[in-house]
């Protein structure tokens, strides 16, 4: 039925990846390649900030007040040392964006990971055990969905703020933020994983494992979990974009990371005071960076969802 013998599928893991339909679809969509490149550039810049950034904006020794409020390099009075200009204290905007992205991405990635672990665990248990356990977990999820995620994050942040002494709060603010964003996002994962688990647990390979005598924990971990991770990956990508926005929003409102720590949100918040005094670059550039990053991740996530869904291919 086949004319020419088809080339045999490569044996190695890498070889199989480059041979896969996903890679094929990726390499043929320029927009997706662009968004992947932008995302990876942001991640790399954030990870290697101390080496990538032209200045260290938090090294007081390198900051000179004489350099304050310089416009971007292409405007009159611009300085070639400061590509995107400086703020009122003479810090390089480009460098603060890179350091800000570092904090923002750390918070968002950690929050997404926390959401994922919590949501997948609850989803697996809910779907596999069923009955009352399922009902309780899913009703909690329903109740939480009735509140906007940002409200929940603010609520948690507020409670922790009220409980902890002021001086301690500054140190753990980032972790509170991670917890708050993480908690507000687990429902998506739990619902998706529960749905897939309900399908998978009735498949015969799970029954075969039960006939062997294997217990529920190992069945969930070894058999069901690897088969429900596809959709989770997609949700995680899109959730990452949402988490970045949430972090920025909370920090902008002053309930996220302390104003002294640079993150996308705090940069925009600090900069907006100067909008009307003419130094628009202090807030506009971090804003553009945030928008581009989130757009890139979203585009990538949308593509991933379509590529992993055989019905849309």
């Amino acid at each position: 039925m086949i004319d020419a013998p088809l080339p045999r599928a490569p044996r190695t893991r890498i070889g199989r990846f480059f041979d896969s339909d996903i890679w094929y679809s990726f390499i043929r969509s320029p927009l997706v390649i662009l968004s992947a490149v932008v995302s990876i550039a942001f991640f790399a810049a954030a990870l290697f900030a101390p080496w990538v950034a032209p200045h260290n904006p938090f090294d007081l020794a390198s900051i000179d007040l004489l350099d304050s409020s310089l416009p971007p390099v292409w405007l009159e009075d611009g300085d070639t040392r400061f590509l995107l200009g400086t703020d009122d204290q003479g810090r390089d905007i480009l460098s603060t964006i890179i350091y800000g992205a570092r904090i923002s991405l750390f918070v968002s990635l950690a929050a997404v990971f926390f959401s994922m672990v919590l949501g997948i665990t609850l989803g697996l248990v809910s779907g596999y055990v069923g009955g009352r356990t399922d009902a309780i977990i899913m009703r909690i999820a329903d109740v939480q969905l009735a509140f906007p995620a940002i409200l929940i994050a603010m609520l948690i942040d507020g409670v922790v703020r009220g409980l902890l002494p002021r001086d301690l709060h500054g140190d753990i603010a980032i972790y509170v933020l991670i917890f708050a964003i993480g908690i507000s996002g687990w429902v998506q994962y739990a619902r998706t994983v529960r749905g897939s688990t309900l399908v998978e647990k009735n498949k015969e390979y799970v029954q075969a494992a039960r006939v062997i005598g294997i217990g529920p924990v190992i069945i969930l971990w070894r058999h069901i979990l690897p088969n429900v991770t596809g959709p989770v990956l997609v949700i995680a990508t899109i959730h990452l974009a949402i988490a970045i926005i949430t972090e920025a929003t909370l920090s902008f409102l002053g309930v996220g990371v302390p104003p002294t720590t640079p993150s996308m949100g705090t940069l925009i918040q600090v900069g907006q005071d100067y909008l009307f005094s003419g130094e628009w670059w202090i807030t506009i550039f971090p804003g553009i960076a945030l928008a581009v990053l989130v757009l890139a991740i979203n585009l990538f996530g949308d593509w991933l969802r379509d590529a992993l869904n055989p019905k849309l291919r």
Binding site: K203, E204, Q207, A208, A209, V211, I212, G213, I214, N227
Partner: peptide, 29 residues
């Protein structure tokens, strides 16, 4: 006592290699 199932497409975990599928009951017991 062991069982052989009807649907050959759903009775094997598609994420595991054949050797792991067959070795699982050996290790378990």
């Amino acid at each position: 006592m062991q069982m052989i199932f009807q649907d050959p497409f759903s009775s094997l975990n598609s994420r595991m290699r054949v050797k792991d599928i067959i070795a699982e009951p050996i290790h378990f017991h």
